[in-house]
């Protein structure tokens, strides 16, 4: 059984058709990257998996059952920004996931349980390379460190699928290369299922196991909202052919130029 199973899925905002007739199966353990022109509905797609948005029509199953319609622990998320808690230090940020689960009333652990949570959180911080900053507040961290923290926060919950929405989009190229190594490493070690949206085709093309390209196939210049995006490419990463890369690159860029015009 697929982890995520999507059949004939539509998403509309009023008149605006964002996604149309999407069909997709995602298996456990896959690392899918998602690229496409700006505004084609990548974040919207991720939000539906997360439970923040609901599809307009179609079958949308998670482990064979309808998706929970609000965010829950099965699905972890790392946004581009703002997903760490500024009032907690790094260690407390990671502990929060454990505390919220174990303490249903106060959301806070004490004594031995707290020690235990600290230990687990510290191990996670070591895995993402933040152990030396455990007692800093997020405002004292660089952008890349904040994203590492956000990943650690999610991973401590062992989510069935980890969603990332342009997690490295705001980082310097050098830093984002480090982050690629980190996320691949974590994915392998923890048997994660990952879905990552990115603006950077190069990132999508070489990271992970499967590349999905969202794009509008039909286009009505008079009514740009008439048609939604579909999946135009669904290719396993590994047969990194230059020609395919160029083809996709061209199709995405064309769309973006159209949008600007």
């Amino acid at each position: 059984m697929s982890l995520i199973s999507i059949k004939n899925l539509w998403k509309e905002y009023g008149e605006n058709i964002v996604l149309e007739k999407l069909n997709l199966e995602i298996q456990e353990g896959e690392f899918c990257t998602l690229v496409g022109p700006s505004g084609c509905g990548k974040s919207t797609f991720l939000k539906m998996i997360l439970g923040q948005e609901t599809p307009t029509r179609g079958t949308f199953l998670f482990e064979g059952k309808p998706f929970p319609q609000e965010p829950s622990v099965e699905r972890g998320i790392v946004f581009q920004r703002y997903s760490v808690f500024s009032h907690l230090n790094v260690l407390e940020n990671v502990m929060l996931g454990i505390e919220l689960e174990k303490s249903k009333f106060l959301g806070k652990l004490f004594g031995a349980a707290r020690k235990e949570a600290q230990k687990t959180a510290m191990e996670m911080l070591e895995a993402v390379g933040l152990a030396s900053s455990a007692y800093k507040y997020p405002t004292e961290l660089s952008g890349g460190m904040q994203q590492r923290l956000s990943i650690a926060q999610s991973l401590v919950k062992k989510p069935k699928v980890l969603l990332l929405d342009e997690p490295f989009g705001a980082l310097d190229p050098g830093i984002s290369a480090d982050m690629h190594t980190l996320i691949l490493d974590l994915w392998k070690k923890n048997n994660l299922t990952v879905i990552m949206v990115t603006h950077d085709l190069h990132e999508g093309f070489y990271l992970g196991t499967r590349l999905l390209v969202f794009d509008k196939v039909r286009h009505d210049p008079q009514a740009p909202d008439r048609y939604g995006a579909k999946i135009t490419y669904d290719i396993p990463v590994g047969d990194n052919r230059k020609s395919v890369y160029k083809e996709i690159d061209k199709s995405i860029k064309r769309e973006e130029n159209d949008n600007e015009a």
Partner: peptide, 12 residues
């Protein structure tokens, strides 16, 4: 983003 993140961390 923070409120959604907190929900994915198991918050009620």
């Amino acid at each position: 983003e923070q409120l959604i993140k907190a929900q994915t961390l198991g918050g009620s």
